[in-house]
Nucleic acid binder design. Sequence first.
DNA 1: ACTCTTCGTAAGTTATAGCTTACGGTAAGT
DNA 2: ACTTACCGTAAGCTATAACTTACGAAGAGT
Lengths: 105, 105
Amino acid sequence: MAYGNALEALADPTRRRIFERLRRGAQPVGRLATGLPVSRPAVSQHLKVLKEAGLVSEEREGTRRIYRIDPSGLAQLRTWLDQFWDAALDAFKAEVERSEGDKPE
Amino acid sequence: MAYGNALEALADPTRRRIFERLRRGAQPVGRLATGLPVSRPAVSQHLKVLKEAGLVSEEREGTRRIYRIDPSGLAQLRTWLDQFWDAALDAFKAEVERSEGDKPE
DNA sequence: ACTCTTCGTAAGTTATAGCTTACGGTAAGT
DNA sequence: ACTTACCGTAAGCTATAACTTACGAAGAGT
């Protein structure tokens, strides 16, 4: 149930902003922090959560830590979401067939 | 940014259990509450959050309220997720091309 | 060796999400 | 009309998530 951690991670608005920033490419912590309304340590804490959720990966480069989006967590979320998508469509299909049965043929 | 509300709604474990129960089909509140480790009013509160997030819809049937999965909120989540999917693939592609450039052809 | 940069972690504070019980409203059955 | 079933909302409590400042580690440059 790794999708649970991913959902909890992406629930926070600040964490979403960080994650959306990484869409433009890999970045070190300091650069991610500039422009955000929270302190740099806060960004570090958020990145830790995102990493544990499998949403970002870390690469050390000297004293810097470069963070980038990790597709693995994303993939799990997608497959989980698709289950509901299919279920909702099936329910809709069943609903249509039910009302079809009401029609006088 | 409706996906934000959807993510926050699905972040809670109890709310996920309710949502996953609805995958089997539409159900009234009382039936959803049985088997869950929380009280029935708690389930009502969770359903309210899910509804405001566009993830479930409500249908009144006498004194009962039937809840079912609403595909609209799901669709918004999917499109939002796909943006990161594409971005991550592009970044990966760029990374490969960069290391390809290092190779002596 | 010393300094500076970059970053993670610890400790402490505060807002709030999730839960409970209590209550009221509405529809259906007798 | 009275009772019963089903449900939403209000009020209050509690755990904790998100933030801050302070500190230390670790590498790069002089």
